[in-house]
Design a protein around this nucleic acid. Sequence first.
DNA 1: TCAAAAGTGTTCACCGTACACCCATGG
DNA 2: CCATGGGTGTACGGTGAACACTTTTGA
Lengths: 231, 231
Amino acid sequence: MTYKYKHEDKALVAVDCIIFGFDQEEEVLKILLIKRDFKPSKGKWSLMGGFLKTNETIDDAATRVLCTLTGLQEVYMEQLSVFSEVDRDPAERTISVAYYALINIGDHKKDLIKKYSAQWFDLSEMPHLIFDHDLMVDHAIKRLKYRISVQPIGFELLPEKFTMRQVKKLYEAILSEELDKRNFVKKIHSMEILERLDEKDKRSSKKGSYLFRVKKDKYRRKMDKEHEFNA
Amino acid sequence: MTYKYKHEDKALVAVDCIIFGFDQEEEVLKILLIKRDFKPSKGKWSLMGGFLKTNETIDDAATRVLCTLTGLQEVYMEQLSVFSEVDRDPAERTISVAYYALINIGDHKKDLIKKYSAQWFDLSEMPHLIFDHDLMVDHAIKRLKYRISVQPIGFELLPEKFTMRQVKKLYEAILSEELDKRNFVKKIHSMEILERLDEKDKRSSKKGSYLFRVKKDKYRRKMDKEHEFNA
DNA sequence: TCAAAAGTGTTCACCGTACACCCATGG
DNA sequence: CCATGGGTGTACGGTGAACACTTTTGA
C-alpha cells in the first residue's frame, strides 16, 4: 500500500558539473564548458548539466552527466550545494545541485568534446555563463582551494606519473599564489602517499626531474580517514 | 517567450531539519523530533520537514519549516547535503535537502511543540527515525563537530548571558570529549568575541561565575571572514 | 662554461597541549 | 572551617614559514 503526497509542488531537479582540468603545457587550471544547443540561452556558454531521472540518485546523475561529456568514470566529484533561486532558469522552475569534478585533462574523449561543442577555458579567461553558473564556479573554486589544503585530492588532476614541479605548479594554479619550493616538497612528502620512481622527466630541464606516482592504497586510506572528520 | 523542458522527470523536493538545542540543566545536547501524524510511517519519530514550494528557495523552505515548529526566525542554519536514494520515501520519489539548525532551547514556542507532538531527545537516547533521517543526523553531528572547531557557532545554542562553564559543557557535549579548563578558556578568549559582564551566576557554585555575552559586531565579522574561506 | 631548473636543511615564531594550585563563598 | 566549583600561567613539542646554495647537464 502506498500513499502519495497530494497537492505538493513538484520541481525539475538538475545537476551541473564544474569540471576542472590541469593543463600541463600552460601550467594553468582549466574548466570545461559547453555551448548550449537548446533553448533557453541557446548558443551561450554553460556548465555541463542534466536532469535527475526517477531511477537514479543525485550522485548518479552527476556521474552520468560527467561521463556523457568526458567518457570518464570513477572520477573524483564532490557535491557543493543546491541552487534554487526561483527564477534561476527562466524556462521553468528548476533547482540544481552543483558538483565539481577533477579529471586528468589528457584522459577525456575528444570526440565527445566536439559533439557537445565543449571547450576548455583558462579560469582567468572564462566567458560569462548562463543562469547562476558563474556563482557555482565561484563556489567550486573556493571549495577546491579549501579541500586541497586539507586533503591530497590534487593528484586527481595529474597523470599517473608526474614531477614535483607539476604538483607545485598545480597547487599554485589552484591557490593562485606562489609557493616556496622547499616547504612545498616537505609538505607533499609528509603526506606519505607518493613513491619516487627511478625515471626522470627531461622535458623541462637538462638535469631532469624525478617522476612520482601515487601509492593508491595509502591514498585511499588517507582520503577515507579525513573524510570521516570533515564530512 | 518561455520554453519548457518537455519529457523531463519531476520530483518532489523536501527539506528536513536537524534541530539542535543545548539543555542547560542536564548539560547535554538535544535534538527536536516530531511524531508524524500523516502517512506513510504515521506515528513514528522523524525530523521536522516540509516540501519546497514553487515560490521559495530551498533556504527559504528550511527557514519556514524551522519557524513552523519553533516559532523562531533568524536562526543559524547550514545546508548539509542532498539525500536522494530512489526509495528513501516509500510513498513517492522525493529528494530531500538536509539542514541543521542551532537554537537557544529556551526560546522556542511550547505550544508549537505540542501541536506537532514534538519532543526533545538526548542524542544518546534518540529513537530510530523514519526513512534516511538517522543518516542525516549522523551527517549533522559530524558537520557540527567540525564547524564548531573552526567557527564560533556554539554561542548560537546558548542564551544571551552565559558562563564559561556552560560554554565548556556545550563544547564537551558536541565533541563528546572532556576538555582542559585552562586551555579551553584560553581558546575561547583568543576568539575575541566575548565580553565579561560584572554580573555573576551563583546557581552552580558558592563563589559564582562571571557571565559573558557575545559581542555581536565582532562575531558577525568573524563569521563572515571565515565563511569566505570555508565556503 | 654558462644558463636553467632540480634538489635539499635550518632557524624561528606561533599554537595546541599537558599540567596544579589558590580563591571565594555558603552552609 | 571546609567542601565545592571558579579562576588562572608556564613549559614543551610540533607545525608552518622564511630563507640560499650546490648540482646537473645540454647547448
